[in-house]
Design a protein around this nucleic acid. Sequence first.
RNA 1: GCCCGUGUAAUCCAACGGUAGAGAUAGGCGACUUAAAAUCGCUCCAGUGCGGGUUCGAAUCCCGCCACGGGCACCA
Length: 867
Amino acid sequence: MASSESRYVPADLEPRRQRRWAELGLDRTPDPSDERSENFYALSMFPYPSGNLHMGHVRNYVITDVIARVQRLRGRRVLHPMGWDAFGLPAENAAIERGVDPAAWTERNIAQMRAQLQRLGLSIDWEREVTTCRPDYYRWTQWLFLQFLDAGLAYRREATVNWDPVDQTVLANEQVDAEGRSWRSGAKVEKRKLRQWFLRITALADALLDDLPLLEGWPERVRTMQANWIGRSRGALLRFPLLDAEDGVEVFTTRPDTVYGVSYVVLAPEHPLVERLTSPDRQDAVEAFRAEVAATSEQERVAEDRPKRGVALGGAVRHPFSGDAVPVWIADYVLPDYGTGAVMGVPAHDSRDFAFASSHGLAVRTVVVPADGEIPGEIPNDPPGEAFTAPGRLVNSGRFDGLVGEAAISAVVEAAAAAGCGEARTTYRLRDWLISRQRYWGCPIPVIHCDHCGVVPVPVEQLPVELPSDVDLSGSGGSPLERASDWRRVPCPCCGAEAHRETDTMDTFMCSSWYYLRYTDAGNGNEAFAREAVDRWLPVDQYVGGVEHAILHLLYSRFFTKVLAQRQLVGCREPFRRLLTQGMVQGITYRSPSSRRYVPSAAVADPSAPTDPDTGEALEVFYEKMSKSKHNGVDPGAVIDRYGADTARMFILFKAPPEKDLEWDDADVEGQYRFLQRIWRLCDSAAQGGLRLGSPAPWPRTLADAERDLRRAVHGAIEAIEDDLLGDELQCNTAVAELMKLSNAMGSGLAAVGPAVAQEAVTTLLLLLAPFAPHLADELWEQLGGEGSIHRQRWPQLDPTALVRDTVTVVLQVKGKVRGQLEVPADLGAADLEQLALASEVAQRWLEGAAPRRVIVVPGKLVNLVP
RNA sequence: GCCCGUGUAAUCCAACGGUAGAGAUAGGCGACUUAAAAUCGCUCCAGUGCGGGUUCGAAUCCCGCCACGGGCACCA
């Protein structure tokens, strides 16, 4: 029979299985209105269609696919869609560099990437594919924009904004990193004053923050990042009146209780009151300082370690409580766009103010002392060595003396409010979302500018406002749409006079903020989505994607969902119930220590002692995120060619837990391939031995020991894998390890059992394998005579009685150290176990006849004797 | 500086407070083979980053450090 042994040839088997799945329509989303089972929405972050699938994509989609397949086997109706985040600059840049049409370029990339994706055997319902750059999608993006406009949540204003000099467009705050670089181009952004479109995300700041605790299925760290980003800060607004005028300087402070410690007020150099508060003799100094600040970059200015510089204006304001005159300064450490752009200087109780006051000779007045300390009879006059910033008891503060902490804060705020010179105030770090982009390849903002009527929304029935083709993209400066004069010129929808279209396009994050809603009703030509369809599937049960969107996409999408919920368009406040942020895929990276040049792994002759092929010097070896520039990428297509998709999937799932970074290792890929071959041989030899899965063999009246052992392994695997896949955290790596363990047990145990137990074992192995290696499992299922596709079967039922053991090994400890073992009946009670332990030879030897002081018994586990 | 995460065998990774090893890679030995590959079997390798503490018992809980990764940061 050995000669008839068949071989595992994934290159042949996988396309065949995929054709079969397509014929059967296995991946089509079931009708969600069927009430007999629950719905499950498995979602991956959709890709930008660069044209090339990389390992990060593979990891993302394979994880989601395992979840989708497990849920299907467990009887859920699963929605598992895919689409394309298809607007964006690479298409436009390709157009500029090579003269290709952005739409055609994008569509070609999509076709290419879809084909690459499909080779992975993902159970995606392609009938619901969405593509954000197509008019049938962006029509609804525009419609949603008009919803925001109607709700007063979209507006246009002049503002200082981030300008990316490389991509020639503005960026939202979220798209600029801590170093002041663009998330896309990496260029240092510049500040420009421009008239731009914004979405009023700050109006939802409280909701976005307060609902974070609802997201129990999200990683803690993502929630923290969003909370930091929103940056809510509760405090008060206090007004310091000008000496000779009605109005005053408003400051924001989180410590209104320290107001009696104010020895100066500082404005941002850009503050509008600077001119009025500058005395003639200070004019030149102030001008010079403002010019200097204007010349320093944003990044330099916010660097914490630089000295705090500033100049006095000469003018003063009146303290709201004491009435004293307080000098006014400007300084570079006060930022114009946070709070009110002005702060009260309290050197004794704020470390920044302390540093500033120390270097400019300003008074330091102590007004807070530790609350638990003695109340000093006399407040020390010596200036302290550093600011005391903790909350405490007020002193030197007039009628507020003696108040402590929160009580002091609210007393001051109430007094300020009563006197009309202040009120409680909350400020946020979060800024409104700048959505204008001065580029062509994006969703046009559907408004028309009319000299008579102002900004007029494009009537809904005229949507979509389609992008014109044949636009000259080559030029620089301004949006390309500005130059499409035929497209731009339109009659005003209100008065009919000649008007012109808005030429800014939307940030692509607008398009991706609602795609998960469109999937639920992808073919709808009459509306963005039916509320009914959305409510059946949302919130998404499991979302999987990269942590790089912890703020960007995930915050915007939450914002969209909340606005749509307010407008009764969707029924949930949060779009994503569970979120898994998968780790990076890293490649082995070689770098020359002297030239800092990256060397491709193909050029490294001996990986155990890598040397530079040109210079012969030893190379640095480390793992880093795969990228073209580091020559450390592995092409998914090449891996599939060589080993098949199932091996690639198994490797990625096994090598590391989903949330952690994964180090690509060819030897481990090889190992996974061997494992799948082992399963193939296992099933093949079972088939040769006559095993068939079609009709169940009669169950024996009693089981032999070998049969009970094998059943224990089988049901142990079910239990463990359910734990790994359905528990709080997804642990695909240990689930795969359990599969290996089961296959090892079957390798030695299958021959010794009767047909019924063998059938159960093989069926279970294949069912448990099916979500991970769907092609192989389905092929073997068919070869063994299983009915239909394995992907239409039900998840194996755990039989707890199969897990029961007759005897167990109990550990004997003496003072917590393992000293021996006892083989005892599994159901032996604590008292009996203790007796057995005390009588044991180990106890005799270690206790030397003395009775233990204490005995800890964990039945079925251990006995600990404490002398 | 603040917050979060991670440190276990040569390597990647496991271990409800209860025998540190589930699984894999690499290495070693053996079987099969004329030989090699493949396959199968066996096997070497850590006391869990460091220092304390709690406990009968700590990789796991607590405190203080160190290293690496990530987020925020003159945000008043």
